[in-house]
Design a binder for these strands. Sequence first.
DNA 1: CTTGACTCCGTACCTTAGTACGGGGTGTAT
DNA 2: ATACACCCCGTACTAAGGTACGGAGTCAAG
Lengths: 143, 143
Amino acid sequence: MKTKKMRFLTIGQLAHRAGVGVETIRFYERKGLIAEPPRSASGYRHYAMNAVRRVRFVRRAKALGFSLKEISELLALRVDPSSTCGDVRQRAESKIGEINERITGLEEMKAALTRLSASCRGRGPASECPILDELDRSAESEH
Amino acid sequence: MKTKKMRFLTIGQLAHRAGVGVETIRFYERKGLIAEPPRSASGYRHYAMNAVRRVRFVRRAKALGFSLKEISELLALRVDPSSTCGDVRQRAESKIGEINERITGLEEMKAALTRLSASCRGRGPASECPILDELDRSAESEH
DNA sequence: CTTGACTCCGTACCTTAGTACGGGGTGTAT
DNA sequence: ATACACCCCGTACTAAGGTACGGAGTCAAG
């Protein structure tokens, strides 16, 4: 347990500060989400302090529903001088659209399940359950 | 292309009628979602007509948000004489709860993204985009 | 100078729900 | 009798996002 104040972070320290596992850092590096840091003579990764921000960026973007692939595109936009703020906003908006679609799908599932659930008084053997019956009984939607 | 009226279905016919691929049928069999059918002398699967219903049951339950594992539990309930209709309904209701949680999570993402998106007027280089800035700038929620 | 924690690397494994592949046998229409 | 569609099986691969493993090297403290 070394806690000497250093100008850089080891991979374990970075992982800890960013709230992820060490393996996750190396995984993100392989995916190109964080840059390969300089190495010590013995090959240890030495991260600058702001690497924490970078990892947290990834985590926050993920929490907003972006995939790692999309996150690396977002990061590429930032670096590319020909890309604009509008490009970024466009991505945010299309992600909102995606989320809306997913919500709609879930609402539909929920409505169907609610209807099914209401059809069942909860008495009697499962073999006669109207829920299972209806799943079984043939089939509007498909084919 | 044989369309002679038979009392059974080949795997391809079953797949076609159920609206899935042949490989999916074999996959469901491996997963225990559909029973292993009798075989012809040469090893071909011979499905009873009601196998179509079974496959469609799986597809419909999946469309309602159940995983294949959960679907096999549902199917097990139906066969188990000690299980009741209430057990089935309970599963439906806890799935509704799960869906509600997912919706809530998506609503939160959406709200956060909407706020971010509004902070960006869409002008200027991506490197100065307030959306990226905020993703970058440190960090309430984690750690 | 040894112990224990940490790091390196490559590779394999996990989950979910399939899809694809390759080499072989079968069924049937022409 | 031969073409062609269909079926068999086991295995590997896909996507996403990591997690785990094993053997080796390294670092700092006691």
